[in-house]
């Protein structure tokens, strides 16, 4: 397909989005990511039954935490697509990058970095 997607996106592969935990998302923000999104399988299509549904709840938790801190919750998102939707994958990457670009750089400043 040779689809291109923004180079701003760094992919971390997991066996199932059920493996993604709240702490992984929080630590990404803590360490200076401008945004972080989870790309899981389509709802109802999880090979492990509910991994993607649990991931969505964890994303919601992180959104609430960021809100409490005063950071835009839109910096964290959950998307669902199938492994056959390459075009959608590229589209989501562009969409997320666009959202984050509008929000601007992260307000979490890593002075040590």
């Amino acid at each position: 397909m040779r689809l291109s997607y923004p180079a701003d996106v760094k992919i971390i592969q997991v066996p199932c989005t059920g493996r993604v935990d709240i702490i992984h998302l929080l630590n990404a923000i803590k360490d200076g990511a401008d945004g972080v999104y989870v790309a899981g399988c389509l709802e109802g299509e999880c090979h492990y039954i509910s991994g993607n549904l649990k991931a969505r709840k964890k994303v919601e938790y992180v959104k609430k935490t960021l809100e409490e801190i005063g950071i835009e919750p839109e910096r964290v998102a959950m998307y669902n697509l199938s492994s056959a939707q390459g075009a959608r994958f590229a589209e989501i990457a562009s969409e997320m990058v666009e959202i984050v670009r509008k929000l601007g750089p992260t307000p979490v400043i890593n002075s040590a970095a």
Partner: peptide, 14 residues
């Protein structure tokens, strides 16, 4: 403990 730690660090860095 990890979640609280990360959340506090984010808030303070902000």
């Amino acid at each position: 403990v990890e979640i609280l730690s990360s959340s506090l660090e984010i808030a303070r860095k902000k």
